[in-house]
């Protein structure tokens, strides 16, 4: 394996959890709901994925458990914000706090245990191709899921009737409701989808990225995913670009440090954030298009009047 290929693989691994969590949140926000609990759902996915894999011996069941737990955990947020119409910001923040605490409790007996790694794809011949073999045919299954999710969500949002309905709810829930669209039901499904994605992103951390469980192992990745959605102005392809840019600059700056050029490491460490924000802001500089993409009802509680 050459160094270029190895670096690209490292970038893909760093970008994948951000991409998946951000895609999930993108769908949630497109439906007009702002869930700040991504970090909490992600860390719950990480711990439950790890624990399920450790108990059953199957990392695949771990992935499944993470997805289910992420979706169930997000239901708590869904019930409070959608059925009881609580403030979305406060509820989302509490979901993050709850997730961080609860995951610590669930995982207490599993710290320091050697985890199981989800096996990477291997196709004899293809995976051994020079340069692209490992990148295209030899990555972990969650990487392929993240690409499929990007394409799937693009198709769903912009090419299907249900996607159009979802976006219309995000833009104006009152009108959608007046048209007879089940606003709350759509939003429940969107929130659960977001939770499932965050859970899957968490599973990537504890079963692929660093196959172990340590408390707070998401280390702020849920927040980066949230920011990506906004800076990518709610477009799936831009989220993909943002996640990979962030991953690439993160890994790039480490390589620059290791080469010993003597550039201040504090500056280098902040580069991924700076670069991602600058690039995504530049991409989204067309104000009219950005306004069109911004879900107009984002974060506003909806109480059906009749």
């Amino acid at each position: 394996m050459g160094i270029a290929e190895s670096i690209l693989l490292t970038i893909a691994t760093a970008a994948t959890p951000l991409l998946i969590a951000a895609l999930g949140e993108l769908v949630v926000e497109r439906s007009g709901v702002l869930n700040l609990g991504v970090e909490g759902m992600m860390v719950m996915g990480a711990v439950c994925g790890f624990v399920a894999a450790a108990l059953t011996g199957s990392p695949w069941l771990g992935v499944l458990a993470a997805i289910v737990v992420g979706a169930l955990f997000s239901l708590l947020f869904g019930f409070l914000t959608l059925s009881v119409a609580t403030n979305q910001v406060a509820t989302g923040l509490s979901l993050t706090l709850l997730g961080l605490g609860l995951s610590g409790m669930i995982g207490e007996g599993f710290v320091g245990q050697a985890g199981q790694k989800l096996p990477s794809l291997y196709i004899p011949g293809l995976s051994d191709l020079p340069l692209v073999g490992r990148l295209v045919f030899g990555q972990d299954p969650i990487f392929y899921m993240s690409i499929a999710l990007t394409v799937g969500i693009m198709w769903f949002l912009f090419r299907t009737r249900a996607g159009l309905t979802l976006r219309s709810i995000g833009d104006n829930h009152a009108s959608a409701h007046a048209l007879g669209i089940p606003v709350i039901a759509y939003r429940y499904l969107a929130v659960m989808f977001g939770g499932a994605c965050a859970g899957l992103a968490g599973a990537h951390l504890s079963l692929v990225y660093t196959p172990q469980w340590v408390e707070n192992m998401t280390a702020g990745r849920g927040w980066i995913a949230l920011a990506l959605v906004v800076f990518a102005s709610w477009r799936p392809l831009r989220v993909l670009a943002g996640a990979y840019l962030f991953g690439a600059v993160t890994i790039g700056q480490i390589h620059v440090q290791a080469l010993g050029y003597g550039i201040p490491s504090q500056l280098l460490s902040s580069l991924p954030y700076l670069a991602t924000i600058v690039v995504l802001v530049l991409i989204s500089r067309n104000r009219r298009l950005t306004m069109m993409n911004t879900p107009a009802s984002l974060g506003r509680a909806f109480v059906p009047d009749r």
Binding site: I3, S6, I7, T10, A14, P17, L205, Y209, T210, Q212, V214, N216, M217, A219, G220, R221, T250, I251, I254, H255, Q257, A258, L259, G260, S265, Q266, S269
Partner: peptide
């Protein structure tokens, strides 16, 4: 000795990234 500063005490992912980069070098 090659040194990489990750500017955190505790971020498994970042520490893993640094480890991979160092090995690649």
């Amino acid at each position: 000795l090659k040194v990489v500063w990750v500017n955190t005490w505790h971020d498994a992912g970042k520490e893993a990234d640094a480890a991979k980069a160092l090995i690649d070098q």
